[in-house]
Structure formats: structure tokens, C-alpha cells
Design a binder for these strands. Structure first.
Lengths: 129, 129
DNA sequence: GTGCTACCTGGAGCCGGGTCCAGGTCAAGC
DNA sequence: GCTTGACCTGGACCCGGCTCCAGGTAGCAC
């Protein structure tokens, strides 16, 4: 008596669109999504859990083909745990770098904004003189 | 006696490719790049400065069409400074949100890594017993 | 039994952001 | 005066990541 989720429920909870879910299945990011007797997808708790992982992997910029690789390793059981860990560590390093870069560029942006504010203030002062 | 930079120099200093520079000119992110008598681009100091801005706008996720809009406003002089500031502020808010989101997802990733480490440690312990 | 809704399928299309190509021109060095 | 290299042009192509479409089916509501 495993519990299943309909596509609509997954859409609601996870925020992927129907089309994206089907797309992920097509390209192998999701695999073996079971069907009910009428042929409709039903997502298991494990599927949903995996989708949560997909979301943070994707949102941290891991390309889908790498996510797929990871998923295929996971499918091959414990034996591949070390490889998966390495993959995650390597990705994590990239993420850290990206965040650092993003923060630097963000700082530039804020400086520009500061510049505009001063500029407009000076202009305002002139208008009142 | 304005100083100019050749495309190659800009490529070196800014890290955009030749093709990207030409592409940016085509779509209006760059405008009025002057030419030498032989028709070759020469980038002014102001162009280079603008390209630096393009880089941090792009790297913080501003879409090129918005960057173009911004550039066109800038071209219309001081009159549009307020609008430009608003645009930057709005973008800056999005960036802040994105960084926050990224940090949350990054945290998830690190938890997963932690889980793997523990898992492998337990496994290692078993192997030695 | 007629709708309606929620799905299904394979395949085409779209969008952003480049990247590559063919064919040509000029300037400099030898 | 010839080669080489850095550039020019317009246009085609690519890639990732979706998104949309047409045509079809199963189940429920009335």
C-alpha cells in the first residue's frame, strides 16, 4: 500500500510543470516512473524525494546531463556512492565559486547604484540653488 | 587624441569573445562602436567601461534585452537617470533574492554531502568489523 | 451516453545566448 | 608584390531547457 502522487500533485508541491516532468523522464533525469492501470504516471515518495534533489541540483546550476549521470549512478546502488560523493563535491566547489563571483558582481552593481544616488542628489541640489 | 582599443585588446581585457562583441553590437547592447579608416572597430575608453558594466549586469543575471534598454536610456542623457536607477534597483532586488535562494539550495547540497560522508563512514566501519 | 477533466503520446517549435562559416579587405613585414 | 594575420560582413547553426500542439483515452459527474 505504497502511497502515490498524481502528476498534478507533484506539479503543485514541487513547482515543476507537467511538461518539465515529462521532459525529465524523456531525457533520463527521471526513470521508471510507474503507471496506473490506465497508463497515467504515479510518483512514489522516492520519486518526489529525488525531484527535490533535482531541484536544488538544477537551481545551483548543475546541467541536466550531469544530473542524469548522477541519477544513473544512484540506480546502480551503494557501490557507486563514492563516485556520487565526488561528483557532488566537485559541483559544490563550483557552486561556492559561483556564489563568490556573484557576490563580487553584486557589489559592483551596488556601487553603481550608489553612484547614481549621489549623482541625482547633486543634481537635485543644483536644481534648488 | 582619444585612445582606442582594438577588438583583440578588448577580448584580452574583458573576456568577451570577438563573436560576442559583434553579437552585442548587432542586438544593440553596444552601439556606435566607431571604425578606423579601414572599417575595423576601435573601442573607446567609454566603450570599455560600458562593457565592464555589461559584464556585471549579465553575470548577475540581467537579460540582454534589459541591458539593451538600459543602454538606450543611458544614451538619452541625464534626463533618464532616475529611470535607470529604478531599473538597477529593481534588478538589484532580484539579485539579492537569487543569492538568498542559491544559498538555501547550496545548504541542501551540503547536507546531502554530509549524509554521504556519514553513510560511507558507517560502511567503512562495517568493512573493518 | 455526453461532457468534462486529467491525463497520455510523439514530435515540433521557441527562446536566449552565443558560435561558426565563407568569402572578402586592408596593413605590415619580408 | 606576396603572404600573413587581424579584422570585416551577413547569415546559418547550435545548445540547453523547456513549452506547445494535435490527436487520443480513461474515469467521473450528471
Amino acid at each position: 500500500m505504497t502511497e502515490y502522487f498524481t502528476p498534478a500533485q507533484v506539479v503543485d508541491r514541487l513547482g515543476f510543470s507537467h511538461d518539465t516532468l515529462r521532459y525529465y523522464e524523456r531525457i533520463g533525469v527521471l526513470e521508471h516512473i510507474s503507471r496506473d492501470p490506465a497508463g497515467r504516471r504515479r510518483f512514489s515518495a522516492a520519486d518526489v524525494e529525488w525531484l527535490e534533489a533535482v531541484r536544488y541540483l538544477r537551481d545551483t546550476g548543475m546541467p541536466l546531463n550531469e544530473i542524469r549521470r548522477y541519477s544513473q549512478l544512484a540506480k546502480d546502488g551503494d557501490r557507486t556512492a563514492t563516485t556520487r560523493l565526488e561528483l557532488l563535491l566537485c559541483h559544490e566547489e563550483r557552486v561556492t565559486d559561483r556564489i563568490a563571483h556573484l557576490n563580487r558582481q553584486h557589489e559592483q552593481l551596488r556601487q553603481k547604484i550608489g553612484w547614481y544616488r549621489e549623482h541625482l542628489a547633486r543634481q537635485g541640489a543644483r536644481d534648488h540653488s
